[in-house]
Design a protein around this nucleic acid. Structure first.
Length: 175
DNA sequence: GCAGTGATCATA
DNA sequence: ATGATCACTGCC
């Protein structure tokens, strides 16, 4: 007896938009890693070189170079020497922007979800596509009134303006 | 409330 | 080569 069909992957052009638009539309969609699929419940926006909380704020480095590349690729880095954090690059090539995954399915917290789904450094720079092992599947866009916006977490050092910007998006009532 | 943890990057 | 800096988590 065959299981349910895996979700159809989002097309690459889905990610070629502002990080805010991509973030909004990622909420509620299934993240599929291996044979597991869970809904995305919480994300954060990192937009351009002006955003002082973004790794891209001081130009390219070996680590963040993928943010300046084409959209629809994974940016996975080690945080505090312990946790792998997973982002999806957005916007046009040469414009550094990304969406950080903060909650997926039963996992609340960017380090917990990568551990739970087995996402690690081998995913860094890979396309967000089934052959990479982790991709996002198609699903209806959530109504705007199901999305709460708050300041981002853990970026107090980035300056008051960017620390206060409501760039964290949470699905209010995942079912 | 805060220590642990280690890659990364700027400075030299 | 060295030291400050973290897009966090779990235990105090």
């Amino acid at each position: 007896m065959p299981g349910p069909l895996p979700p159809r992957p989002l097309p690459p052009q889905f990610y070629r938009r502002s990080a805010l638009a991509v973030a909004r539309d990622l909420l509620g969609k299934p993240l599929c890693c291996g044979d597991q699929c869970h809904r995305i419940t919480e994300v954060e926006v990192y937009e351009g070189t002006r955003d002082l909380a973004s790794h891209a704020a001081r130009g390219t480095t070996p680590r963040n170079e993928v943010m300046f590349g084409p959209p629809g690729h994974w940016y996975v880095y080690l945080c505090y020497g312990v946790h792998w954090l997973a982002n999806i690059v957005t916007g046009p090539r040469h414009y550094p922007a990304a969406v950080l995954l903060r909650g997926v399915g039963p996992w609340t917290g960017p380090g917990k979800l990568t551990r739970g789904l087995g996402m690690g450094p081998t995913l860094d720079r890979a396309p967000v596509a089934p052959h990479s092992g982790c991709y996002v599947g198609a699903a209806p866009v959530l109504p705007l009134d199901r999305i709460r916006r708050t300041p981002r977490i853990g970026i107090d050092a980035a300056g008051p303006e960017w620390a206060a910007a409501p760039l964290r998006l949470v699905w209010k009532d995942p079912c």
